[in-house]
């Protein structure tokens, strides 16, 4: 893979209550060998973005506009068959949010991994098993886990199995949706180290989704901050976490709400209010109802993405001056 280009993608959920504008014109690029972090509060559209990239919206969702170009080919123009043969799990895999808790309790790990793999690609059982073992070893597990049932395994082991399964068809891009959120800190750090090693060894590109800016600082080369279905800010790790700090008022508040262990604070900041209802998102800047720096213009006109320095873009009127 050279490049994944996402242009003005829109994914709406057509529910009986109305249309949820879950992704509303999101654009970004993922380069070979990089990890792009996607952060934002619950409900801002992170998981929806992951499913959009695979062109696999969850019903009643539909991609209504945009392009997703993988090395120049718009995957939104491919049919189901082409997607399955060329893209999903072949070039792009996703570790779904909570997948480790969705392993079937009544089957052994061998049976579950075999089924997943054989349903994607035809091969002899022996060959499949050899490959499974190769990938288990790669994620730090021994072949011994194959005869176990999910309940006999720890959370960390289950997450490793899910990662091994995602890697099996040798994708170049792996989308990880909250892969460490449900785990204890030590296991969390172990999984993050594992992902970093895999990235180097297998020359993978990652999209790493989480609501935690602290975790993102450990893994992401660049960070995309989402708010209410839109991009608020994109910057490098240094730009977002460095001394000059993030540029969007939303990112700044998220950062202030992130507790720091190594420094005593008397008060944690929080963002008053809740994200807007995506059935009827507000006009103007989607953050204006909660923004401490709101101006008259913010309420009426939607801010464009403004490049404030190389590689650093922000959707906020404050930066237009």
């Amino acid at each position: 893979m050279e490049k994944l280009e996402v242009k003005k993608i829109k994914l709406y959920y057509f529910t009986s209550k109305g249309v949820i504008h879950a992704l509303d014109g999101v654009s970004f690029e993922l380069r070979a060998g990089e990890t792009l972090g996607v952060v934002g509060e619950s409900g801002c559209g992170k998981t929806t973005l992951g499913t959009a990239l695979l062109n696999m919206p969850t019903p009643p969702g539909r991609i209504v506009a945009g392009e997703i170009r993988l090395d120049g080919v718009d995957i939104l123009k491919l049919n189901e068959n082409e997607l399955r043969k060329q893209i999903r799990w072949e070039k792009m895999a996703m570790v779904f949010q909570g997948a480790m808790n969705c392993l079937t309790p009544v089957y052994t790990i061998r049976k579950q991994m075999m089924e997943t793999i054989l349903s994607h690609r035809k091969m002899a059982k022996e060959e499949a098993e050899a490959r499974i073992i190769k990938y288990l070893n790669l994620v730090g597990l021994s072949a011994d886990v194959l005869r176990r049932y999910p309940h006999e395994l720890s959370g960390g082991m289950k997450q490793r199995i899910v990662i091994a399964t995602a890697l099996f068809l040798e994708p170049q891009i792996v989308i990880c949706d909250e892969p460490t959120t449900a785990l204890d800190v030590v296991v969390q750090a172990q999984i993050i180290n594992l992902l970093k090693k895999l990235k180097q060894q297998l020359k993978l590109s990652f999209i790493f989704i989480t609501h935690d800016l602290a975790t993102e600082a450990e893994v992401a080369d660049r960070i995309l901050v989402m708010y209410a279905g839109k991009v608020a800010e994109i910057g490098t790790n240094e730009q977002i976490y460095g001394p000059r700090g993030a540029a969007h008022p939303y990112t700044q508040l998220l950062m202030a709400a992130t507790p720091r262990l190594r420094q005593k604070v008397d008060q944690l900041a929080f963002i008053p209010g809740t994200p807007p209802d995506l059935l009827a998102p507000p006009a103007g800047c989607r953050f204006h109802l909660r923004c401490p720096q709101v101006m008259a213009r913010c309420r009426q006109e939607e801010p464009p993405l403004i490049e404030i320095e190389p590689a650093h873009t922000v959707a906020c009127w404050r930066w237009k001056q």
Binding site: A189, I192, K196, A214, A217, E218, I240, Y241, G242, T258
Partner: peptide, 16 residues
């Protein structure tokens, strides 16, 4: 093991 929102950690494998 606790992550911290500070720069300069992304290329390190954390010592646990």
């Amino acid at each position: 093991a606790v992550p911290e929102p500070v720069p300069g950690r992304v290329n390190l494998i954390k010592e646990i």
